[in-house]
Write a protein that binds this DNA or RNA. Sequence first.
DNA 1: CCTCAAGTAAACAGGA
DNA 2: CTCCTGTTTACTTGAG
Length: 567
Amino acid sequence: MMVESASETIRTTPSNQNGVSSLSSQSDGGGGREGGSNGDVNGEISPVDLLHLQQQQALQAARQFLLQQASGLNSPGSNEVKQSPVQVPVSMAMMSPQMITPQQMQQILSPPQLQALLQQQQALMLQQVKHTLCSKQLAFQQQLIQMQQLQQQHILNLQRQGLVPMQPTAAMQSLQQAMCPSDLQQLWKEVSGVPSSEEALKQAEGLDLSTNSSNSTSAFPKAANAHIPLHNLPNGQNHTPKRDSHEEHTGSHPLYGHGECKWPGCEALCEDMGQFIKHLNNEHALDDRSTAQCRVQMQVVQQLEIQLAKESERLQAMMTHLHMRPSEPKPFNQPLNLASSGSLLKRDSDAYPEGLPHPPTSAATPITPLLHAHSHSHTHPVGPIRRRNSDKYCTPIASELAQNCEFYKNADVRPPFTYASLIRHAILESPDRQLTLNEIYNWFTRKFAYFRRNTATWKNAVRHNLSLHKCFVRVENVKGAVWTVDEVEYQKRRPPKMTGHNLRTYPSSHHLLSAFFSSHPVHVKEEPTEVEEDSRPVSLLAGVTHSLPLPSDERDLEEDLPTEELE
DNA sequence: CCTCAAGTAAACAGGA
DNA sequence: CTCCTGTTTACTTGAG
């Protein structure tokens, strides 16, 4: 109880200035853009128009891609459905990382996969920028709808398998509540100018929306009118078991393409659909691992959404600057799941005039941005990451970092290591195996986007760890003091604790599922981030650091957690 | 329930 | 005086 009061008085301590300027708000203008919208005239094609068009196309493509990604994670047997009257942003329900942190996801599924995925996505996004010319909103709508359906399907599947703990109906209800269909309907109208989503759907169906077909894996099913009105779901009666069989007969599956399974990290070859389905059921049944992988995929999508949001914001700023009337600003401003979840949940407040909060918090605060606006600014200002999973669950820090350094460098994800192990790693990584405090700080900020904010907190933790653990030895130097590692102490320090649990099986299905359905991400503790520039998930992929051979040093380090690894 | 490790917050001291 | 560094204590949380 006291804690709360304590945390409420958190003040940003002076230490913030330690060269950690990660804030580069590029959004100038956020304000009065709605003033300038006067209809959609497109008589002439000026450079400005082209720019506009390009941007929109890019954004649209990105959005589509995100949606595809999101739909891709809807576990097997979840496509073929096509429409639902109610818009339900999948990710809203599925992305609730407050229960399982991104780190955990990463642990579960090696981030190289994440990187690979992101890379793919980036490439595909670029491709799609070229191909996606028409059917902007419609494609968007279409896919959103599909996502919803997939989500529903997924839920149904879970129910069927008895894996949805307790009352699936409750899950549904919470889902539905969180979604607030009416809000969504409204949103749709705003966004698309289409009277209702069903209308939109009809239109969408009338068109060839296969713009996404450039992504061979996505092949959105066009068939099926398996309606699953969400409003029926709460009864828990709408199981439509036939869908599986139905799916098997249609030749496409988002997780199947080019004769191989597109499940993240799988790539198993399957000659035909039947074989693939079999494979899917065998290898990717709903278990801890698959569920965890889903969450990883969510993370991927989330990161892409962040990127998308940023681009949207940029577009807005550009257009504002050029005095353009954003012909269709809304869809782009609306970071579909992330932010919208907040706004919808929030409900009462506008909080969402523009879709994106303005400068600093915008993109990088996927989960909570709007909540902050609402609550006292200090309520959870720094989202203390209590109780992160300890490194005992992790792969050895050295290899993990070596493989995923680009990821951590850019993604605002807390590394799944203890402070102590990180500090040690930093020190041992240095040429002289010694670092000053400030150098350690710098290492943290350099290596982890996550540590580019809340500096007061983690720096304090670093100092605390340095002092606390005997394995860190302070050595007076000419220029001051440096910190070194007493390896013996360090090893001693480590409890024989078990662990290792294969990360892939770490979080239990229950956890994951409850996370899935806890669509009340209101209390997310992700902090108000400022990682604008850093959370550039897409670009980070260019990194290609994975598969770097480990330096000998790293090898040493890697031995560091042998027991932890092997259970 | 207890213990322990980890994370967080904060008070405090000493030095630049 | 402010800020940084370093130490220490207190507390919470999660896991064993």
